[in-house]
């Protein structure tokens, strides 16, 4: 026992190859290289696809409940070329970005001023906290009453679903700007307005951008809900129609298209984040 300990202590680090060359995969918060990460991520998608194919090919489940990947792909192609998948996607995209954009345009300044000035916080924050817990979906009847079933109702619902969350998250982003950054500006002669614009906004910008990326995901959820109850176009509407006609593979296509759009926008926004804010660590 004694000699083993002696040895392990006196060994120079260079002779412990496992400390140097091999990536510690299972270290808490360890690092792995990018390629390996992508490989593992790809594997999870392939596994899911394989599982899906296996179950549907085995015939255990009625294809009415679980169509195979082939049938779904076929449906995708025919929806894309013979029907109007692009149109449905386009209208849905428009609604999401209109509702989300409206929320963002209002939430960024409000969140900034809540995070900057305590009286503004006292006035708005409890109100926002309350509104956040009102179930957005329960507003559908009201929204339809007020805005009909035109574009306004879908956009309003997305706004209700995202705005309050966004304001609270952005005000939190702004509150997290280190006090010392604010104080340094004040001792250099910055006015309150200058502190808000030149320090708070600039410093919180990467976090605000991340908040917007996250809430864009919520917007899609509310879009589908709105399109299922109050629309005659769009992906959500198409999914509901497909259910009425028992076209299960069409439901699958709708869901997967939304998922892929979400994944692509999210990855794009992450990339934009890295380009815009190279100084911020994610």
């Amino acid at each position: 026992m004694e000699t083993v300990q002696e040895n392990s202590i006196t060994l120079p680090p260079a002779t412990l190859p496992h400390l140097h060359n091999r990536t510690p995969l299972w270290t808490v918060r360890g690092r792995i290289n990018k390629r390996l990460y992508q490989l593992i991520a790809l594997a999870s998608f392939l596994l899911l696809l394989g599982l899906w194919w296996g179950i549907s090919a085995s015939g255990v489940v009625d294809p009415l409940f679980l169509p195979g990947p082939g049938a779904v792909a076929q449906c995708f192609v025919s929806w894309l070329f013979d029907q109007d998948l692009l149109n449905d996607t386009g209208i849905s995209l428009y609604r999401v970005f209109a509702g989300f954009g409206l929320s963002a345009v209002m939430a960024v300044p409000l969140g900034l001023y809540i995070g900057a000035y305590q009286p503004v916080r006292a006035f708005f924050e409890p109100l926002m906290e309350f509104s956040r817990y009102l179930p957005a979906v329960a507003f559908i009847p009201l929204v339809m009453l007020w805005a009909g079933i035109g574009e306004g109702s879908k956009i309003s619902l997305i706004w209700i679903g995202t705005f309050f969350q966004m304001v609270l998250m952005i005000s939190d982003n702004v509150s997290r700007v280190p006090l010392s950054q604010i104080e340094a500006a004040r001792t250099l002669g910055a006015t309150n307005t200058e502190v808000v614009h030149k320090v708070l906004l600039r410093s919180a910008m990467p976090a605000i951008f991340d908040t917007l990326r996250l809430t864009l995901g919520f917007a899609w959820t509310y879009l589908v809900v709105a399109e299922m109850v109050a629309a005659n176009s769009g992906l959500g509407y198409a999914i509901l129609q497909a259910q009425r006609f028992l076209q299960t593979e069409r439901i699958f296509v709708g869901i997967i298209v939304i998922g892929v759009i979400g994944l692509v926008t999210d990855q794009t926004l992450r990339w934009v984040h890295r380009k815009l804010f190279p100084w911020a660590k994610q």
Partner: peptide, 8 residues
């Protein structure tokens, strides 16, 4: 003490 520089 913490420098409080503007990282951007």
């Amino acid at each position: 003490q913490d420098y409080s520089l503007y990282p951007w």
